[in-house]
């Protein structure tokens, strides 16, 4: 009871704190290269990264977005690390989060392997291509494109709706052939939900694009997986969210190898990011029923827009 009241006050304050901290940092940093802002000892940056990742982990769960999509634009914008290592760490953050969330969701029948595998197969190939393209581009161009993608994601988060139980009157032939359908128990309404999908070929095509973007920028891409599953293919929202994690774990793993082989993963940066984000996500999941997620989501959209704008400026060399 006491924890819940603390959570109700603490979490919006934490998200607002992140936003204010970013705004305060933004002004001097906008005029300077990131490494020029290094006034702190290396261990200070690592502690800051751990604490920041921890807070992001809490906020990301409450806002219903993946860790990677917040991590990459914010850390690349406001920490002194090169974008290569931030993208590498971002992919691993998303991968670790998806792996640790997976087992209970698979057991409940919410994460569905038969739905995930075809999407992950095409997505993993395109995420490898995306990672190769991203790492071969000039960092300023990547920053510019990242800014555009992040601002677009903020726009999608404002505009996109969601449907708890979309109606699929007639499953398409491909999904029938592959046996993609399922049944789960909805604990909230205490009833069974059976589902099937349509527009599978278009879904597969979109997962190619999503995989490419995820690999290129080191983003988790849950922001795009969920609407494609839910709004396009007619997968119930909970199954869409859970299965998105499964797809993400496979795509993230494929792209992570490219970053590992290109030397774009520094354990010094990646491990505290993963640890902080995973701890924060666990706290966030416990606070989820107790806080006003709408306010958090709005703050996160604002943070994303700010980070996207910062990336755009860096892309223009400002």
């Amino acid at each position: 009871m006491r924890i819940s009241s603390i959570g109700r006050r603490l979490v919006p304050a934490a998200s607002a704190g992140i936003a204010v901290a970013l705004l305060m940092q933004a002004a001097p940093l906008l005029a300077a290269a990131p490494h020029a802002a290094e006034g702190m000892a290396w261990w200070g940056w690592l502690i800051a990264l751990f604490v920041f990742s921890f807070l992001l982990g809490i906020v990301a769960v409450l806002a219903g977005v993946g860790g990677g999509v917040l991590f990459v634009p914010i850390v690349s914008g406001f920490f002194p690390f090169h974008l290569d290592y931030v993208r590498g760490a971002g992919l691993l953050v998303a991968l670790a989060g998806a792996l640790s969330a997976g087992p209970p969701l698979l057991r409940k029948g919410l994460a569905d392997l038969k739905l995930a595998l075809p999407m992950a197969l095409v997505g993993s190939v395109s995420s490898i291509v995306g990672a190769l393209v991203g790492l071969s581009m000039q960092v300023q161009n990547v920053q510019l494109l990242l800014g555009i993608v992040i601002i677009s994601i903020a726009g999608i988060m404002i505009k996109a709706g969601k449907s708890g139980y979309p109606e699929v009157k007639q499953p398409d032939r491909l999904s029938q052939m592959m046996g993609i359908s399922g049944l789960y128990y909805e604990e909230y309404g205490q009833h069974e939900v059976s589902w099937q999908v349509h527009r599978t070929p278009l879904g597969i095509a979109l997962f190619i694009v999503i995989g490419f973007i995820g690999g290129m920028f080191g983003l988790g891409a849950g922001f795009a997986n969920v609407p494609v599953f839910n709004l396009l293919m007619g997968v119930p929202l909970k199954v869409a969210v859970a299965t998105s994690g499964l797809v993400l774990s496979i795509n993230g793993s494929a792209a992570a190898w490219v970053y590992l082989f290109k030397g774009a993963v520094l354990p010094l940066i990646a491990v505290p990011s993963i640890g902080g984000m995973m701890l924060g996500s666990k706290i966030g999941a416990k606070l989820l029923p107790k806080v006003n997620t709408r306010t958090i989501r709005l703050i996160v959209i604002a943070i994303l827009a700010l980070s996207g704008f910062r990336s755009l400026l860096k892309g223009f060399g400002i």
Partner: peptide, 25 residues
């Protein structure tokens, strides 16, 4: 069918892990 698909997926991941896609740095 799904055994083949999962095998293909493992092959993609193993190829990525072999560094074959990342050569030429």
């Amino acid at each position: 069918f799904y055994a083949a698909m999962a095998t293909l997926q493992v092959v993609v991941l193993l190829l990525a892990a072999s560094g074959i896609f990342s050569s030429g740095r």
